[in-house]
Design a protein around this nucleic acid. Structure first.
Lengths: 226, 226
DNA sequence: CAGCATCCGCTTTGATACTG
DNA sequence: CAGTATCAAAGCGGATGCTG
């Protein structure tokens, strides 16, 4: 990308990560840790292979990504974020939150990956009853099952099936997220094709509350002259 | 921009604000409040006029920007952020912070605008001595003077000259920021052409501390299967 | 198969000129 | 002041081919 040529921190940030696909590559590496080239392609459906190679080279040069030649048993190159790359997490988290209201719309040809949903769940869900015994929720949607464990006030997300889930939800991601974020009740979710097995009370324990528009004021950041 | 077609909050955010120039337009409106078309052009040096018009239309459609036909005395259209647009402030703030280390390099053809620097100062400076009487600093660089007032633990930034500044700094923006962010001492700043008038002790009062790389760990956000 | 490089048609951008 | 119109150049998406 052409530089904006502005002596401004935001512009300089965008000089580095403002290109198409770049932040999504960082998202993949932030969510999944070390990735092979092929993993990245799978997590970025639609990216042209030459673009992925280009972006990885640029990110490496900018010091956000490092490549590591994995030892003999694996024998493949792994890409991972450097500390400088990890520092983009606040940006990704904010974009996650800002974009959540847009998740109410799921276009028919939207690709779905469970680790994206897992990221959203991690940002949104909390354990409202730390004193209660741990509970486990299994979510079956996307390309692999997601396990949500609430214990001692913390919520942990794993991309695998649960051992003995207290509740299992299956169906399309959109109504399931609506249910977990408190936008739909169980009945409405069922109408949208969600099925469950187990104890629905788990929902009260971990449900997130949707960020309502916080009535931001219109005052500019910096007061202007006269 | 073409949609990424991903059911992911970050991708959906970038579908809206991921285009070239878009976030910088939001930056302008966030920093300066209501802007005329011409103000925006001045704050976005190098943007093609048709692109600015396109982006404003897209932002309006997406509900982030509203245009307002100002009453007779002004007789011009003003653009401002809607509440939904204001909600991007956390994203802008994080990009501000992430990009600060890049400000150590000032390319010869980088444009400079005081309100960008004011944004950086607002994010970075704090009043370390709330119990002390208020102090005022005037910074002379960029296209207009900046006033930094520290009082009662708060720091306020204005884009205008100070009444009776306790300290005035003049020179290139890069060494001045270095000085204010604690990367240079006064002597080093002077070597880089910064001049001052008044009491340098003001610096101790408001100086920001530079975000050192916080040794982020490499653990992925979501644990992977097996 | 993993990790690219090359080629080609299309879209987006940048620069400039022009208009109500 | 607030845009629209035009056109060349750069970037992108998709397909394909190459190398270990």
């Amino acid at each position: 990308m052409r530089s904006y040529d502005e002596y401004c921190a935001i512009a300089k940030s965008l000089d580095v990560v403002g290109d198409r696909w770049t932040l999504l590559i960082v998202r993949e590496l932030a969510l999944r840790g070390g990735c092979r080239y092929t993993d990245l392609r799978n997590g970025l459906p639609g990216i042209a292979t030459n673009l992925l190679a280009d972006r990885l080279r640029e990110l490496e040069q900018a010091g956000l990504v490092a490549r590591e030649d994995a030892p003999p048993p694996i024998a493949t190159t792994l890409f991972h974020l450097t500390p400088r790359g990890q520092e983009l997490r606040p940006v990704l988290d904010d974009l996650f939150r800002w974009g959540l209201p847009l998740m109410t719309e799921q276009k028919p040809d939207d690709a779905v990956r469970s680790h994206w949903l897992a990221g959203a769940l991690e940002v949104m869900l909390t354990d409202h009853s730390p004193e209660q015994p741990p509970v486990a929720l299994e979510v079956r949607t996307g390309d692999q099952p997601i396990t949500v464990e609430a214990a001692d006030g913390d919520v942990r997300i794993r991309l695998s099936a649960a051992e003995n889930p207290d509740l299992t939800l299956s169906g399309d991601p959109q109504p399931i997220l609506g249910l977990l974020f408190g936008l739909r009740d169980l009945e409405a979710a069922q109408t949208a094709g969600v099925t469950y097995e187990g104890d629905p009370a788990v929902l009260e324990r971990i449900r997130g509350s949707f960020p309502s528009l916080s009535a931001a004021d219109y005052t500019p950041r910096v007061s202007l002259p006269s």
